[in-house]
């Protein structure tokens, strides 16, 4: 675990913790607004969390070439996570338009 210095480890750990708290904050935000679309957004943020954990595991084992599969996993989950984020944002927009139609006279 010495491929990364202590400050670099802290930068990594802080990023991951912030992401976890952001997932929870998006859920709370949706509860306050009473809109279900935000829960889907928070769920769409989970693949990126798993992706980050794969990357951190690889770092934990000194970026071992034997564990290159973790980097591929990280890359694949990044792609999957971004597709999920896009769908969640599109869904929020769809719900916004639906509620706009309801309000129209």
């Amino acid at each position: 675990m010495h491929a990364l210095s202590l400050p670099t480890w802290w930068i990594h750990i802080t990023s991951v913790l912030e992401w976890v708290l952001a997932i929870l904050a998006v859920q709370a935000f949706g509860r306050r607004r009473r809109e279900g679309g935000w829960r889907w957004l928070s769920l769409a943020m989970v693949p990126a969390l798993v992706s980050a954990m794969a990357a951190c595991t690889w770092h934990l084992f000194d970026n071992s070439p034997d564990l290159r599969g973790l980097v591929v996993l990280q890359a694949a989950l990044t792609g999957l996570g971004n597709v999920a984020l896009a769908l969640a944002a599109w869904n929020l927009l769809r719900l916004q338009r639906l509620s706009g139609e309801e309000q129209a006279p």
């Binding site: 809109e35 591929v72 890359a75 990044t78 971004n82 896009a86 944002a89 929020l92 916004q96």
Partner: peptide
């Protein structure tokens, strides 16, 4: 994978920007 993942991310930003809330 990393390069391709940029495309859905840009779509995410594009749609998220239009959500007023």
């Amino acid at each position: 994978f990393f390069v391709l993942s940029l495309v859905p991310y840009l779509a995410f930003l594009w749609w998220a920007r239009q959500v007023r809330a």
